[in-house]
Amino acid sequence: MQLDWTGWSQFILALVAVGGAIGAHFLNRRGQVTQGMQQTAANELATRAQGFDEMEAVVEWQAKQIEKLEAKADKDSLAQARRCRTTLDHFMVSFITLIGQVGTEEARRSAEKALTEAEVHLAEDHPDTPETTP
């Protein structure tokens, strides 16, 4: 089938141009809307991802602080035990000296009892602390 469109091509192509331009404009708008939606979603995701990073940083910081506190607590306990041991050692020496000096039998027995108690305390409560010489 052959048609004689001579003279009509200008009109037809003009119509196509107008229709095409309107269609392209409409599709461009649609593309922009989709793009805007993607941008919003991506921004939201990025914000959330940053929130996770921040949480991770806080957790790491807290773990570090806990380690520091534990180390300090250990050091304090050790120092206190050492002080206690030294004091008890001093007491023991004093008791031994006292036992040799007291005149009455009753006082000597009391001193010996106190010495035994101090030794028991040292053996039970401070088995690992180093010996200190008074």
Partner: peptide
Amino acid sequence: VALKDFVVCAQPIRSPFEGL
């Protein structure tokens, strides 16, 4: 090819997800 061009018109030109 014209249809392809129209399809591209309806798509986002930039994608934030690619950057991410």
